[in-house]
């Protein structure tokens, strides 16, 4: 049982890393698409000879991304009732992620006995926020006629697992570790430093279950919206509003893409020719030539 927990845990970390990297590579290698942005205000096209003007302001884009993620501000503006629970949940999750980072660092950097209870409050508050938010989301997904529409069964299970994960984590800290920061830090330290292998192989149920649940979320991560958001913002920062400049890298990419062959079956498309050919060699029946001349 003990070694299974260890294998599942490290396995899930590996899976998560590999999954994320594979998805990233797949996405980055995908061909660049035609220009297809939308704007929240004025753009460069308001200027005459826009191609001679400064194109993208990366800093503006980065700023907007950070605000989106930190505040979920699009939801705030467009769907306030949903935002209220969604935000509680996300705030909780963000704080929990930070808490784990702190926990791992503190376990090796701080003398456990001197750890203050502030850490405990932080962890519990974050868990409570995530729990209340998550429960709120689940309730809304069950009761709200709009939010339950199209919501697939799998995702209800997801929320139940999420709430259980949070509850169990609270139980482990509060009752198994007796709400003692020093005990918790010592435990984490042995984990991080691989100190007590014996303990690792025979974990107590409270921590074993926590590790197993964490593994589930690690396996889920590469398929979750977190990954998709990452890809979306990556795309936004790297591709949006990037013009095709003569002799530039974009033109190079496009030239390659125009060489791909087309296999669409409709009669107006020549099968088997390249994009470039299909676009320039218009089939006879389409271009009877200058009919009016």
């Amino acid at each position: 049982m003990g070694s299974a927990v260890v294998i599942i845990f490290y396995g899930s970390i590996l899976f998560c890393l590999v999954g994320v990297v594979v998805r990233l590579i797949k996405f980055i290698k995908m061909p660049v698409h035609l220009k297809w942005e939308f704007y929240k205000g004025s753009s460069i096209y308001e200027q005459m000879e826009w191609w001679t003007k400064e194109q993208v302001n990366l800093w503006e884009k980065v700023k907007s991304t950070i605000l989106d993620v930190l505040l979920l501000r699009e939801y705030y503006h467009r769907n306030r009732p949903f935002w209220s629970v969604l935000y509680l949940f996300h705030l909780g999750i963000y704080l929990l992620i930070l808490w784990h980072v702190w926990l791992f660092i503190a376990s090796v950097a701080v003398e456990p006995e001197t750890a203050s209870t502030a850490g405990l409050i932080w962890g519990h508050t974050a868990t409570a926020l995530a729990f209340i938010g998550g429960l709120g989301i689940l309730i809304k997904r069950i009761t709200d006629s709009e939010l339950k529409l199209y919501y697939p069964p799998l995702h209800y299970i997801k929320w139940v697992v999420m709430l259980f994960t949070l509850l169990e984590a609270f139980y482990a800290v509060q009752y198994y570790f007796d709400a003692s920061m020093p005990a918790l830090l010592k435990y984490v330290k042995t984990q991080v430093t691989f100190g007590d292998i014996e303990h690792k192989l025979h974990p107590p149920p409270a921590t074993a279950i926590h590790v197993l649940l964490a593994s589930i979320w690690l396996i889920y991560l590469p398929f979750s919206h977190i990954m998709r958001l990452f890809l979306r913002y990556y795309h936004y920062l790297v591709y949006d509003d990037v013009p095709n400049v003569k002799g530039g890298p974009m033109e190079h990419k496009i030239r390659k893409l125009l060489g791909l062959s087309v296999s669409w079956s409709a009669p107006h498309i020549q099968k088997g020719k390249t994009w470039g050919e299909v676009a320039t060699e218009i089939p006879k029946e389409l271009s009877k030539g200058a009919a009016g001349k």
């Binding site: 995908m30 660049v32 939010l147 893409l257 087309v262």
Partner: peptide, 28 residues
């Protein structure tokens, strides 16, 4: 597929994948 639809593939896959079923867009 990349060959036949490189023109919008990336955007299409992202859009197919990313809907959270929150129905926020309907009011737009």
């Amino acid at each position: 597929s990349e060959k036949d639809n490189w023109t919008f593939l990336q955007q299409l896959l992202l859009s197919l994948d990313s809907c959270a079923k929150c129905q926020t867009c309907n009011d737009a």
